[in-house]
Design a protein around this nucleic acid. Sequence first.
DNA 1: TGACTATCGTTCGGTAGCGAACTTACGATT
DNA 2: AATCGTAAGTTCGCTACCGAACGATAGTCA
Lengths: 149, 149
Amino acid sequence: MSDPTEEPESVGTWAKRYYFANRSAVDAVLRQHGIGSTQWAVLYELAARGPITQRELGRALHVEKASLSGVVSTLVRKGLVDQAPSTADQRQRIVQLTGAGQAAWDSLPDPFAEVRATALAGIAPGDLATAVDVLRRATEQVENHHFGD
Amino acid sequence: MSDPTEEPESVGTWAKRYYFANRSAVDAVLRQHGIGSTQWAVLYELAARGPITQRELGRALHVEKASLSGVVSTLVRKGLVDQAPSTADQRQRIVQLTGAGQAAWDSLPDPFAEVRATALAGIAPGDLATAVDVLRRATEQVENHHFGD
DNA sequence: TGACTATCGTTCGGTAGCGAACTTACGATT
DNA sequence: AATCGTAAGTTCGCTACCGAACGATAGTCA
């Protein structure tokens, strides 16, 4: 209990470990396609929703604009995505799949689904629902509280 | 249900969101002390366990040696930590708090505890236990399966 | 119209993480 | 004793995340 070598058993610790276990497994699959997990998520979003502003993309993926900027420019450099200024609002940039991007998307697996199937095998649906609920409530309670002021 | 703008409700998504909400809150507190969250965790471990090899530190924090190497050298650069070769095994490096490191540690808050208290307020202990259990099982199932082979 | 203010995206500097290749050191086996 | 395999740390190149400062555009309101 007071043993300092004791594993911490908090939700936060396990959320982190699960997140990184997931990410590492997803990356292992995507590495063979030369793409990162967030890049995959961007392609997913573009394939599902079509052309969209970078701002909307960031909202959908829960990623800050500063982070997204780098991911998008990587995809542009790879020729998978096109970034054009919006005619309606010159501040915005519309992001969409190129032909090559669509072709790449069609040949890509869904590593998140694969990993999820392994991760959650044999876990009772009710327990999953409880876990999601706990994580959502905890996230909200942290996000609605300002630390460091 | 098939609306592509629908929020994904998987455990993985919420584990990620909770992890980053937590990290951002912890960082906001630690930023005022000029230190990062993993750096804090290293100081915590050293304060609790005393001098230790980098390998052991990595095990305790679930961080790869390559990642830890950078964190430790940052702390060495800040003068909070000392890194000396082990006399028993010249390959190993023993990491320990310096005087300044101990002093800094004594003046540092525990942002993880603070944020945890906010995050988990009002959540039933039984639900917390279920959530931890789900995350642990899912993590194990992912880690024991080799993807990308 | 002109002055503020707010928003979108980029860039910079920093933290955190990983795999692969490398160096050095230890150990065992022959 | 020489060799071969393994272990500890570092470095390199990469993904991904953030806050803060910045330029450009848009919107508001006096």
